[in-house]
Design a protein around this nucleic acid. Structure first.
Lengths: 348, 348
DNA sequence: CGAGTTGATTGGAGCGTTCAAATGCCATTG
DNA sequence: CAATGGCATTTGAACGCTCCAATCAACTCG
C-alpha cells in the first residue's frame, strides 16, 4: 500500500489514466472502460479499478478527451446585456442553466455577442475552437438568424423562449405567460373582483401579447368585459402612470400589469390620486423581480419558473444531441402567482 | 490553385495544421511558429503561410493546444444568484467581463456555486478537468475562503470587489463608492444645496460604509454638518420610507441614497407627505439600475463603470498569470454621476 | 579556407485519452 | 480433438498540437 489510503499524492503532478492503470495492474484501456463502459469489465476488476481511482483521486483530463472524442461537454451561451430591466430574470436563468448543466456533466461557456449585432462569428469560433456540443439561445428575436444557421450546420441548440414570428424551428422551452395572467385573474375573481384591468406593452411584442391573451381569455371565461379595460405603455413609470389613468377612471378595482415596472407605475398613479395600492385597488405584476418583494405594499406578481426553465433547456439540448433526427420538442412551463400584500378583496 | 480562392473547402472535415503545412510546402512546426512566434520566420515564408491559413480557413484546435501546453485560455467564473437587486449590476459586469476576455483570446467558463455554500469543489474541478487558467471572483464576502485557497495552490485569480475585512490578498478591481457619493455631494452643492442627507445601509457592510464615507468627507470639506443628516435602512422601500422621514423633518433639501432602491423609498416618502421628488427635494441614487431611468422623475444616480471593471479584471488576471510573483495590484475605478431629473436646485 | 556563429526550418516525441482491432482464455460443439 | 464462438482484456495507433533538439544553409572571421 502507498503512503496514505485516500489522500491524493501530495507533490506529484496530475494523476493520469496510465498511472492508475499501472497501480491497479491493468491496461490503460481497461481503466478507460471502467469509466465509460463499466459493463465490459468483470465485476471484480471493475471494483478494483474503481477503488484505485478514488484512492489516487484521478480525474480524466477534459482536453485529452475532447481531442479524442471531438466532444467537449461544453455548452455555448451567448450573453448580451439584458434589455430593460429583465436582468434579474436572465441572471437567475443563467444560474439555473449553469447548475442544471453541471449536474449533467456539462459546463456553460460564455461568449459575448457584441451588442446589437447578433453576429454568427462568435458561434463559429466556439464550434471550431472549443468544439462546443451545443448552444442555448436566449432572447430569440423575431427573424433571429441563429436558429436557421445552426440548423443548417447540424449543430444542436435549444431556445429559451419561443420565436414569435416566422417558422418555428428547433426545440425550445418557454414560460407560459398567458397562463400566468390567467391565474392572476382567477385569483382576483376569487377575491370578488370583477372590474379587472390589464396594463400591457404596445402590441406586437410576442411576450406582451401572450400575457395580454391570458387575461383576456380568463375574463371571457368568467363573462367579464374586457372592452375599455386594457391599456398599454412602454416600461417606464411615467407613461405607465398616464396609461392606467383611464382604467382607474372607469372604476377598475384591480390591475394586472405585464411587468413589475408597469405595476410600479400603477402604484404611483394610485398614490397620485390619493388612493392606496394594495388597499383601494389591487395590483399584480409580472416577473417577480427582486423589486417586487421590496416595494410596499409587497407586490403580488407572477413568478417565472426559471430553475425549471434552465433544467428543461439542458434536458432538451441533451436529447437533441443524442438523437439529432428526432422531431422538435417544445415545452411550456407554468408560472406561479406569488401573493403578497397588493391584492386585497375589493372594497375591503 | 484549388477550387476557390478563399472559401474553405466545402465538404472536408476540420482543417488541421498539418494540412496547411502540406499545402504551403513547409513543415507543421513552421505553421505553428507562424502563429505563435512569427518573428522566427523569414518574412517571405511567414506571408506565404499566413495566406494559406486564411485561404483554408484554418483554426487551431483548442483541445489539442490545451493538452500540449496545459493552458486552456479559459477563465472560471463562479456564478451565484445575485442577492437583493444587484442582478443588473452583475449582469452587465459579466457581459463586460466576457467581452474583455474575448478580446484577449480568453473565454469565460461558468460554474454554479450552490447557493450559500461557497464550496471549493467547483473550483477544484474546473482546474483539474478543464485546466482553467485563472478565476474571477465576485461577491467576495468577508472571510471568503476562496482567496486563501487559490493563493495556496498558486492559481491566479482576481477579485471584483475588495475584501472589506481581514488581510487583503491578491489582486482586485473595485469601484470607488466613496468617490461616487463625494461627486454626488459636489453636484448638489454646486446647485446650491446645503442640507444634504445620506440614506445608507446599516453599518458593517463594507460597500455601504464606503459610500457613506464619501458623502461625509465631501460634506466636511464644504463645512457642512453631517450630524443628524444620516439614516440607515435595509433595501426595502417600506423601511427606507420610515428611515428618511426624520431627515426630511429637519429640512433636508437633498438626499443621497446608497442604492436606487433606497432612493425609491425616498420618492415614496416624499409623495406621502405631498412633496414632489425632483422638485421639492433632490434625490440621488446609486448603481444606475435600469429602474433609475424608468422612474419618473428620472433618478439621478451614480453609475458604476462596469465595462472598465470587466476590462481591469481581465487585465489584472493576465498580468498575474504572466508574472506570478509580482506584487499584488489593486485598482479603484471612478464611478460617474448620471444626472437626470431628480436633482433640481433648492427651492426652485 | 576551415572553424565558429547566426538564422531559418525540420524531425521526432509526447501531452492523456479513446477507438478499432487483436489477443488469450475458456467453455462448447460437431 | 480441432474448430467455433463468446468474454475479458490488451495492443497499437491516432486525435492536433507544441516542445526540444537537431539540421542545414549562409555568412563571418582569423
Amino acid at each position: 500500500m502507498p503512503r496514505s489510503p485516500n489522500a491524493p499524492s501530495p507533490k506529484a503532478g496530475p494523476v493520469t489514466l496510465a498511472m492508475v492503470a499501472r497501480r491497479a495492474g491493468v491496461s490503460p484501456q481497461t481503466v478507460s472502460n471502467a469509466l465509460n463502459s463499466p459493463e465490459l469489465l468483470r465485476s471484480e476488476t471493475l471494483e478494483r479499478v474503481q477503488r484505485t481511482i478514488d484512492e489516487m483521486g484521478y480525474r480524466p483530463h477534459r482536453a485529452a478527451q475532447t481531442l479524442r472524442t471531438r466532444s467537449s461537454k461544453l455548452i455555448g451561451y451567448g450573453i448580451r446585456p439584458a434589455p430593460g430591466n429583465s436582468a434579474p430574470v436572465m441572471d437567475r436563468f443563467l444560474h439555473a442553466l449553469s447548475q442544471a448543466a453541471d449536474e449533467a456533466g456539462y459546463r456553460i461557456l460564455l461568449f459575448a455577442s457584441p451588442p446589437g449585432n447578433a453576429s454568427l462569428d462568435g458561434h463559429e469560433e466556439l464550434i471550431d475552437l472549443h468544439s462546443v456540443d451545443g448552444f442555448v439561445l436566449s432572447g430569440t428575436d423575431r427573424g433571429d438568424p441563429r436558429q436557421a444557421w445552426l440548423t443548417k450546420r447540424g449543430i444542436p441548440f435549444v431556445g429559451f423562449g419561443r420565436m414569435w414570428s416566422g417558422r418555428q424551428i428547433g426545440d425550445w422551452a418557454d414560460v407560459d405567460g398567458a397562463s400566468g395572467t390567467d391565474a392572476a385573474v382567477e385569483h382576483l375573481v376569487a377575491l370578488g373582483h370583477r372590474r379587472i384591468a390589464f396594463l400591457g406593452w404596445p402590441r406586437g411584442s410576442g411576450v406582451g401579447d401572450d400575457r395580454a391573451e391570458g387575461w383576456q381569455r380568463a375574463m371571457r371565461r368568467h363573462g367579464l368585459p374586457v372592452r375599455g379595460r386594457r391599456a398599454q405603455s412602454v416600461d417606464d413609470t411615467a407613461s405607465a402612470r398616464a396609461a392606467v389613468a383611464p382604467l382607474l377612471d372607469t372604476g377598475a378595482t384591480a390591475v394586472i400589469a405585464a411587468s413589475d415596472m408597469l405595476a410600479l407605475g400603477c402604484y404611483q398613479a394610485l398614490r397620485e390620486r390619493k388612493a392606496a395600492p394594495g388597499k383601494d385597488v389591487a395590483v399584480i405584476g409580472f416577473d417577480d423581480s427582486p423589486t417586487a418583494a421590496l416595494l410596499s405594499p409587497g407586490l403580488s406578481t407572477v413568478a417565472q419558473p426559471l430553475e425549471a426553465a434552465g433544467r428543461e433547456c439542458v434536458r432538451l439540448l441533451l436529447a437533441r444531441m443524442s438523437e439529432p433526427g428526432a422531431p422538435p420538442e417544445r415545452v411550456l412551463l407554468e408560472p406561479s402567482l406569488v401573493v403578497r400584500d397588493s391584492t386585497p378583496a375589493p372594497g375591503s
